[in-house]
Write a protein that binds this DNA or RNA. Sequence first.
DNA 1: TCTGGGGTCCTAGGACCC
DNA 2: TCTGGGGTCCTAGGACCC
Length: 436
Amino acid sequence: MRSTASIMHLDLDAFFASVEQRDKPSLRGRPVIVGGIGPRGVVATASYEARVHGVRSAMRTAEARARCPHAAFLGGRFDAYREASRLVMERLREESDLIEPLSLDEAFVDLAAADGFDPANVERIVERIRADITEVTGGLTASVGVASSKLMAKIASEINKPDGVFVIAPGTEADVLAPMQATAIPGVGPATAERLRRVGILTVDELRRQSEDELVRLLGQASGRSLHRLARADDDRPVLASRETKSVSVEDTFEQDISDRLQLEAIIERMARNVSARLRKNGMSGRTVTLKMRHHDFETHTRSSTLPHPTDNARILATIARGLLAGEDISNGLRLIGVGVSGLADWVQDDLFSADEEEADDEFEQQEEAPEVRPTRWYPGMDVHHEDRGDGWVWGSGLGRVTVRFETRWTPPGPVHTFRADDPALGAGHTGKFHP
DNA sequence: TCTGGGGTCCTAGGACCC
DNA sequence: TCTGGGGTCCTAGGACCC
C-alpha cells in the first residue's frame, strides 16, 4: 500500500441506461431498464428513476415489469455502449499511461504514473476528468474514488454515487473500512457471505478479528489469505495496463427448452462460427473446446476436450463441440447451450490443409448468415432508419406492426409512428445490429 | 414467468513423469 | 514388499464480477 491517494477508480453511472437516455430524449428523467426482453430475461442496468421502484441488476425482467410497469424496457445496443466506453478510456489514457479497464464502464487509473502528479491537486484533477467525460460522451456522468490502493479506490467510488467523488485520506483506510459490511469487499459474494454469517461474521471489523488460519480453514487458501489482508486494507496490487484474453465464448438461453438434437447441433455450429470469427479477428487460436449445457432444471454441466495444437477453424470447433453433445442425455431439454475456447495462443497455427479440407472449410463458413439488412425481429430500443422520416428507435412491435419514435440524441423528443413490420422503407439504423 | 452473457480465478482429483 | 514425493496437464465445477 502506497502512502499517497493516487489510485483512481472510475465507474460510469447506470451506464447502459444512461446511454439510452442520452440517445432517446423522450426517456430522459424516466425509468429505463436495459436487459433481456424475453420471458427468461434479466435486468442488466436500471436507470436511477427505475431503482427508486426497487429494480436492480440481475433481477428477472418479469419482476422488474411488475415493480415498474411504466418503465421503458430496452434490449440493449452494445455498439453504442462500446463506442461511449472507447471515448471514456481514451480520455483516461490522456491522464496516465497506466489504466486498467475492468469492463465497458469501469477502470482503474494509476495517477502516480502521470507526469508531475501532485497529490495535493487530486480533487481538481478528478473534477476535470469527470467534466471532460461528460463532455466527450454527450452527457454521461461518472463516479470516482481515489485512495492508496485498488481496494480502497473501488470502495471510495461507491460512497458518493452517482455523479460523485470520494477521496480516502492516506492513513484512514482501515478506519473507513472497519464498520462496513464484509460484502463491501470485492470478492465477498453471496456464498462467502453466508459462510461468514454462519460463524457470526457480518462486518469487516469482525472479519479482522479472525486469524489467517481460521479464514483459510473457512474459505480455502487463496480466499482466506487474501481476505485476511484486505480486511486490514492491506492491498498492494498494482494497476495493470494490459491483461491478455484467456478465453472466448458464446452462450444462449432459449425462450423454450430444446430437446431436438439436430436443432441443438445447428445452434452449436452457428456458435462455433461466431467464436472462430472472434478468434480470427484478434489473431488468436485455442486448444481447449468447451461445451456448456444448462438443463430444464437449471442443472449446468460443461464438457471439454483439448486438441494437440491450437486452432481457429470453425469446422473443427463445431465438430468437437457437437461431439461433446453426443454423450449427453438431453431428453428433458436444454434451456441453454454455449461454446467456448480456452488455452489461447496469440498466434495462428500454420496448418497444411488438403484441398478437400480447404473446400470443406469454405463451404462451412459460407453457411454464415449474411449481415441482416432487414431485421427479422424488431426489438425495443434498436436504432432504425425510415426512408422518409429519418432516424428513430423501436418503441414496440408485434402482430406484424412496428412502432417507431423518431428522435435522436441531437433532436428534441419526437413523434411516434406505426408501420407494417415488413415496410420496405424501414431498416436497421447505424448502430442497430440485430439483437438476439 | 423462476434464475443473462461474457469473462476471471480457484479448487480438486486423476494421469503421467521424474 | 512397502508405499515416496513433487510438478504439470487435463477435466469439471463453483464463486465472483460487471
